[in-house]
Amino acid sequence: MATLLYRLGRFSFRRRGLVAAVWLLLLVVLGLAAAAFHGPTGDKFAMPGTESQRALDALAKEFPQASGATGTIVVAAPQGGKLDPAAIALVIKEAAGIPGVVAALDPFKSGAVSADGRYALVQVQFASALKDVTEAQREAYTKAGSSVTGLRVEHGGEVLNAAPEVGGSEGIGVVIAAVVLIVTFGSLVAAGMTLLNALIGVGAGMGGLFALSGVVELTSVTPVLALMLGLAVGIDYSLFITSRYRQFLAEGVAPEEAAGRAVGTAGSAVVFAGATVVIALAGLSVVGIPFLSVMGLAAAGTVAVAVLVALTLLPAFLSYAGTRVLPRRQRTGENADAGGRGFGHTWGR
Rank of each mutant, 00 (worst) to 15 (best):
G234Q: 08
A191D: 09
T346W: 14
V224I: 12
G348Q: 12
G340R: 08
A129D: 10
G49A: 05
G340F: 12
G267N: 10
D84T: 09
G68L: 01
F108R: 02
M193S: 12
F272L: 15
P64G: 02
A275P: 13
Q53A: 14
A112Y: 08
A2W: 14
F45N: 14
L8H: 06
I172Y: 11
F185M: 05
E51G: 14
G342L: 02
L195S: 05
A87R: 04
S110D: 09
S110T: 09
A259P: 12
G97W: 00
S285D: 11
V224F: 08
A46N: 13
Y6F: 14
Q247M: 08
A258K: 09
V19W: 12
L130V: 05
V287I: 12
E158K: 06
G111V: 07
A163G: 11
A191M: 08
L314A: 03
L326K: 07
W23P: 13
V189L: 04
V303Q: 03
A129G: 15
V174G: 07
F240K: 09
D132G: 04
G201M: 03
G186E: 10
A69C: 07
L314K: 01
N197H: 07
L26G: 13
G17S: 07
L195F: 11
V325D: 06
E170T: 13
R15D: 11
F13P: 12
L297F: 12
Y141P: 01
S285T: 09
A115I: 05
A34Q: 08
A66V: 02
L281E: 04
L5K: 01
F45D: 13
A33I: 03
A204C: 14
S67L: 04
V183C: 10
Y141W: 02
A103M: 05
L281A: 11
S67G: 02
E158T: 06
H345E: 15
S243E: 11
L30F: 08
G80W: 05
A76Q: 13
G288T: 01
K61D: 13
G71V: 00
A129L: 06
S213K: 05
G348Y: 09
S285H: 03
L239M: 15
V148W: 00
